[in-house]
Design a protein around this nucleic acid. Structure first.
Lengths: 217, 217
DNA sequence: CGCTGGTTTGAAGGTCGTCAAGAAGGGTGG
DNA sequence: CCACCCTTCTTGACGACCTTCAAACCAGCG
C-alpha cells in the first residue's frame, strides 16, 4: 500500500541497533516485510482462539495485545509499536491465546512463518537478530507483570510512559523528551490493572509534579 | 545423581501428550537431558543480570522464576514444575532478565542450546514439540498477568491452584483431586501481587467454602 | 527450654473501585 | 451559526479491598 521505500523499516532500525547487518541481509529483511496491508483503527488483527491466522510486523501506528476476562473486563498485555512482531508465538500454538487490535490506523506486514524459517537457514545472523527481538518482546511482558504486581498506581503509570518512550526511541519515533500518545485513559487503565477513573486521578498527580500535557492528553 | 532410568522423563510425558514421538526421538530427548545435577532448596540456578549461564530442564521438585524490585519486594513470575524449561530465552538475550530459584530440593538437567539446535535439525518433529512447550510456558506468563491485573485476591488464588493442579496432571504428579504444595503464604503472596497477611485471610475464606488443608498448608 | 519460621488474628488507615454527574472538545445537521 | 450528540476527561462522595503495624500462636529443632 505505501509507496514509500521499504529500506530502513522500523524493524531494520531496531535490529541494526543490536547487530550490524549486511546489505543482502537487509534486502532479505525488506523482502520478508513486503506483503503490506493497511488496517484502520480499532479493528482486530487476530482474535483470541482464532486458528490458522497470520503473524504480522507492525510498520506504522500503535496496537495493543489483550485478553478478555469472563466478567467483561479486558487486560492489555502490551503495546506493539512499529517494528514489533505480533502473533508469532500463536502460530506455533496453532491457536492464538490472545488478541491483537490496532489503536490507530496502521500498516502491517504479513509474514509467513515457513518462509521465515527458510530465510533463517540462509541468513543465520538475521535469524539470531530476530530471535533476539522477539525474546525482548517477551521480556517486556515479564516487566509488565512486575509493574502491575509490585508497584503502586502512580509508579505503574510512570513506568509505562518511560518504557514506551524508550521503545519509540529505538525506532526513531520520538523527539527526545515527548511523544504523541494515542492512548486514552480507559486504555491506560486496562493496561495497568486499574480503573479509568483512578487512572485519571493518578495522571493528575503526575501532572502536578513533573509531566506536560497538550491536546488529546 | 539419580540412579533412576531416564525414560519417561516429565518432559517426555508432556510432549507425547501433544505429539506422539518415535523411539529414536524419545532417545534423543533422553540424551538431551542426560547432564543431571542435584540442587538443594532455596538456591538460585540463574540470577538476574547473569551472563553466560546455562538453560535447564526441571526434573523433580518445584521452582520459581522471579524478579526483584528496587524497594526490596519480589515478584514471582511463574512456577516451573518438572518438565519445564528454565532460562532458555535468557540464553538468546545473552543476559538473564530474571532469576530462577528452587523451592524444594530438586534435580535439573543442563541443556546446551547449540546442541539442542543441532538435534532439532535431525528431528524436526521433536523441535516443533519443544517449541510448542516453550510457547505454552510463555502463554502462562500472559495468563498470570491477566490474573493479577483483572481479578480479585480470592479469584487469583483459586486460579493459581487450579492452574498448578492441571499442570501437575500433565506430568502425572497429582492424585486427581489434591496435591502437595510446598509454597508458603509469603510465596503465594509474592506471586499474586498481594501481602502475605492478606493471602492468609483469603486462604481462610477459601477454606470456609471449598478447600481442604493438611499439615504444612 | 528458647529459638526460628510460618501461620493467625486484630485494629487502623490508605489505596483503589463504584456510583453518579458535570465539563470540555469535535462532529453533524438543521 | 447554533443546537445536539458523542466521546473523553474530570470531580466528588462513599465504601470495599488491601496494606501496614503489632502481637500472639504453633510446630519443629538444636
Amino acid at each position: 500500500m505505501p509507496p514509500t521505500s521499504r529500506t530502513e523499516s522500523p524493524l531494520a532500525k531496531k535490529l541494526t541497533g543490536f547487530l550490524p547487518l549486511g546489505p543482502e541481509e537487509l534486502a532479505c529483511l525488506d523482502e520478508m516485510q513486503s506483503r503490506r496491508r493497511a488496517v484502520s483503527a480499532l479493528t482486530d488483527l487476530v482474535h483470541e482462539g482464532q486458528t490458522g491466522h497470520h503473524a504480522f510486523i507492525l510498520q506504522t501506528g500503535w496496537a495493543i495485545s489483550y485478553k478478555m476476562v469472563p466478567n467483561g473486563g479486558r487486560q492489555i498485555i502490551g503495546f506493539p509499536l512499529p517494528g514489533n512482531f505480533m502473533g508469532l508465538r500463536s502460530v506455533l500454538l496453532r491457536t492464538s491465546d490472545h488478541s491483537f487490535a490496532c489503536m490507530t490506523d496502521a500498516v502491517v506486514s504479513e509474514v509467513s512463518p515457513p518462509r521465515m524459517i527458510e530465510l533463517f537457514h540462509r541468513f543465520p545472523r538475521l535469524a539470531t537478530a530476530i530471535l533476539w527481538a522477539v525474546s525482548r518482546d517477551e521480556a517486556m511482558v515479564v516487566e509488565h507483570l512486575v509493574n502491575i504486581g509490585r508497584r503502586t498506581a502512580i509508579e505503574r503509570l510512570a513506568h509505562l510512559f518511560i518504557e514506551i518512550g524508550q521503545r519509540l526511541k529505538m525506532v526513531d519515533l520520538v523527539s527526545s523528551t515527548s511523544f504523541a500518545c494515542p492512548l486514552n485513559q480507559y486504555v491506560l487503565a486496562e493496561a495497568l490493572g486499574l480503573t479509568a477513573i483512578h487512572a485519571n486521578r493518578v495522571l493528575r498527580q503526575l501532572r502536578e509534579r513533573e509531566l506536560i500535557t497538550v491536546k488529546d492528553h
